[in-house]
Write a protein that binds this DNA or RNA. Structure first.
Length: 484
RNA sequence: GCGGAAGUAGCUCAAUUGGUAGAGCGAUAGCCUUCCAAGCUAUAGGUUGCGGGUUCGACCCUCGUCUUCCGCUCCA
């Protein structure tokens, strides 16, 4: 990351705090690591992004319906999903190099080296791996540590065997349900929202009378106890996902994967973000549930980073829930008169990351020279008008001569239809600057001419140009401009 | 979690070798009013991140801790 980009990222974070978009959580208590709160303008912007996604996915797709599942789920859910096995790993640190390894990766790497040494080594390696699997299955950390020491496994960097104790890192947050604290009552905060959709597959399919192919959309919080959570709201421990699971006939996953890949990119571009800021990143190493996966990456000031994932999840999830619950999760396809467990294409976008994306794209520090030769500047958020927290600033040029009364009338006419902000304090230029800083796309100014001919000026945020329109046109014009 | 750097008003920063914290911007109220921040007046706002230690005395030295940033590491 260049110094310039880094400064830009810092400026965006400062701006977000100063203008009420994002605050560090519990700031008066020094904050809580990697947890943030959304302020007055931030919560509005976030809600608008959320609403736009929801509308695009459900209202605009007749075969997609929504749900809102609970954050708490039956503990077996996470066994079936693979999270209990894959989301908690024993880790060990080398004290000299400060490198941290997953214990199984460390031992496997050693086994690979042994195998290169011929038949003897291969036999040793197989024994080693068998012992490791057994110890892992029993969560025998002391045994694993001994195994590492007995085999004289060294760190690849420091080449020493100066290891810490093995520690368990569980990326799922746990809590207790019920009044008695018993181990059997331990439940997890969901590490992803997808499982709430899978366990409700039949409920939704039957009650909404859905026919394959169809999708279920959901927006909600998920929680991951990241070892390292950093970079502002990019990686948080509590975050919000906007997910859609699309259920399809087995064998058609390739075409639907491609369809959603293109459809989702179009959604991003519809917000006016340039295509060259995006790229696809195909996963080479696939997760345990997928037969194809890619990330939609955006060029943040901190580099190209994942904002959305498209995953072909096969029948892994429904199949496993069927197995663990003992309930049939099949669909009867009347076209071919067959039961089957549907395949799934998932689109999963981080709402907080989308928020950061929008903010990163919108933020600009502009400088220019005025007519008299003096320099001028402003900080402006070029937010897409449809998702801007405030759509219209309404301001009388001065506080007297009856101008505020007219402006108030306009305010009352417009505020039921879109978010407006009324202000009469300070010079008009200063008021424009304040609206620029929070991304308000349009400002109406009532001046003395208004009293003569019932016209006002409407000022456009990005161009700073103004045009005169009749008071009666304001509502319709703004509504038109804020519609995507 | 490790290493490095930083933390003073909402923001950006000051404060001689250790002598009980100031300014600009911003905010609020009022005046003025000329359509792009920069006029005038007043007001509010800080146990210097937090907690110990050294000292007659700590923003300053020291230890711990929290948070943030950078680099590792991790990342379904």
């Amino acid at each position: 990351m260049s110094v310039q980009d880094n400064n830009r990222f810092q400026s965006i974070i400062s701006h977000a705090k100063e203008y009420g978009f994002v605050f560090p959580s519990s700031e008066i208590y020094d904050g809580l690591s990697a947890v943030y709160d959304y302020g007055p303008h931030g919560s509005e912007l976030k809600k608008n992004i959320r609403d736009y996604w929801w509308k695009s996915m459900t209202q605009m797709h007749e075969n997609i319906v929504g749900i809102d599942a609970a954050i708490f789920m039956h503990p077996t859910t996470w066994k079936a999903s693979g999270h209990v096995d894959n989301f908690s790993d024993p880790m060990i640190d080398n004290k000299d190099s400060k490198k941290r390894y997953r214990v199984d990766h460390l031992i496997e790497a050693h086994a690979d080296k042994l195998k290169e040494k011929g038949a003897d080594g291969e036999k040793q390696a197989d024994e080693l791996l068998a012992t490791m699997d057994q110890l892992l299955a029993n969560d025998d950390f002391a045994g694993l540590k001994k195994l590492i020491e007995d085999n004289k496994i060294v760190c690849a960097v420091s080449e020493t065997s100066n290891w810490t104790e093995i520690r368990q890192f569980n990326l799922m947050f746990s809590t207790q349900i019920g009044s008695v604290s018993d181990e059997a009552d331990t439940i997890y905060l969901r590490p992803e929202t997808a499982q709430g959709i899978f366990v409700n597959f039949l409920n939704v399919q039957k009650t909404a009378r859905m026919k394959i192919p169809f999708g279920i959309a959901q927006i909600g919080k998920a929680f991951r106890n990241e070892i390292v959570a950093r970079q502002f709201i990019f990686r948080m421990r509590e975050f919000e996902q906007m997910e859609m699971q699309f259920f399809i006939k087995p064998g058609t996953q390739k075409e639907w994967y491609d369809y959603w890949k293109e459809t989702r990119l179009k959604w991003h571009l519809s917000l006016g973000i340039p295509a060259d800021k995006y790229r696809f990143h195909d996963h080479v190493k696939l997760a345990h549930y997928a037969d194809a996966a890619l990330d939609i990456e955006y060029e943040f000031p901190i580099g190209f980073k994942e904002v959305e994932g498209i995953h072909s999840r096969t029948d892994f999830d429904l199949g496993n829930h069927q197995k663990y619950s003992g309930k049939k999760l099949t669909y009867f396809d009347t076209e071919i008169n067959q039961h089957y467990v549907p395949y799934v294409i998932e689109t999963s976008i981080g709402l907080d990351r989308m928020f950061l994306l929008i903010l990163s794209h919108a933020y600009e520090e502009e400088t220019w020279t005025k007519e008299d030769g003096s320099p001028d500047s402003r900080v402006v958020l070029h937010l897409p008008p449809a998702i801007a927290p405030i759509k219209l600033g309404i301001m009388p040029l001065t506080k007297k001569d009856g101008l505020p009364e007219i402006a108030r009338e306009i305010m009352n006419t417009c505020k039921p239809h879109f978010r407006c902000f009324y202000e009469e304090k300070d010079a008009i230029g200063k008021r424009y600057r304040r609206q620029d800083a929070i991304g308000t796309p349009f400002c109406i100014t009532v001046d003395h001419q208004t009293k003569e001919d019932q016209t006002v000026t409407i000022r456009h945020r990005d161009s700073m140009q103004q045009e005169r329109i009749h008071i009666s046109e304001i509502k319709a014009k703004v509504l038109d401009l804020i519609t995507l």
